[in-house]
Computed example of a mutant assay.
Amino acid sequence: MSDLSRVMPGNLPHVLLVIDQPEVSQRLRDTFLAQGFNVMVVGDAGDAIAQCKTQAPTLAMIDQQISEQSGVQLCRQLRAEGVRIPLILLMDKDTLEDRIACLEAGADDYVLSPYTGDMLLQRVNLYLQSESGLPTTVLSFQDLQLDLATRRAQRRSRTIELTMKEFELLRYLMEHPRETLTREQILEHVWGFDFRGESNVIEVYIRYLRLKVQVAPEKRLIHTVRGVGYVLREA
């Protein structure tokens, strides 16, 4: 197991950095500490899983490659262990296959290199704002409900587990039922930053959200408006 570096004064939100490159992890650790975050740094999957279970970090940032396995594999392990915190992958490349792999593994988001400390702080702050700003209420459309407190959806008696980005996307659609939302609107309101990468990331997320929300013989609720965007409406 690698050495664990932790600074956890008070009850401030804290970030788990899963990076096995000492120079990179030290630089990012110092960046987050300077902003008042609690920080934990680990270098392998075993420590990461242990810290998520025992210390309950607010959010984890995971390098694309750690020790002898990939960050994607670790995301999959953490979700299998019941870890529900936001998981952000630090990636070297951005392809459709990479985004699909992230989603399938349960990652909520990713940041492309070269990334700066300020870029990562911005991303983390977005998730912290989402965490603290959720009212305890439920959105409903037809037979679909979305609990804003637990970030879980339910369709009839079926509970639907969502990643952070899937939750934010479904929430945005359910807040604007029967209204066609353009891809630009979705990028602005769901991602909330100047998106780096191909815009078809929306199609990837919509595809996986549909697979979770619509199981046969349930009716389709998320529809594509060709050349424009997407709409939540009756079949």
Results as ranks from 00 to 15, higher is better:
167 F>G: 00
183 R>C: 03
21 Q>C: 09
103 L>P: 01
181 L>I: 08
118 D>P: 00
145 Q>K: 01
40 M>I: 11
181 L>N: 05
116 T>C: 08
81 E>V: 07
231 V>W: 10
8 M>N: 05
110 Y>F: 15
186 I>K: 09
140 S>E: 00
235 A>R: 15
110 Y>K: 11
48 A>V: 02
195 F>Q: 08
73 Q>R: 04
93 K>S: 15
153 A>N: 08
75 C>S: 06
186 I>D: 06
50 A>W: 13
217 P>A: 10
79 R>D: 09
69 Q>F: 05
141 F>I: 01
36 G>S: 04
79 R>P: 08
113 S>I: 08
208 Y>A: 12
191 W>Y: 13
46 G>V: 15
109 D>Y: 13
177 P>E: 08
144 L>D: 01
1 M>T: 03
166 E>R: 03
205 Y>E: 15
154 Q>K: 11
180 T>S: 13
220 R>P: 10
161 E>M: 07
214 Q>K: 13
62 I>H: 07
37 F>V: 03
24 V>L: 13
79 R>Y: 06
228 V>F: 10
194 D>W: 03
223 H>D: 12
82 G>S: 12
137 T>S: 11
183 R>F: 05
182 T>H: 14
163 T>Q: 09
220 R>E: 14
20 D>G: 10
65 Q>L: 12
119 M>S: 07
205 Y>W: 13
65 Q>K: 12
202 I>W: 08
58 T>S: 02
220 R>W: 07
48 A>K: 06
169 L>D: 11
90 L>K: 11
184 E>V: 13
73 Q>L: 04
19 I>H: 11
67 S>R: 07
147 D>L: 00
49 I>L: 15
42 V>P: 10
167 F>S: 00
159 T>G: 01
37 F>S: 05
100 I>K: 15
128 L>R: 03
127 Y>V: 00
174 M>T: 06
153 A>Y: 05
5 S>I: 12
112 L>R: 11
184 E>A: 14
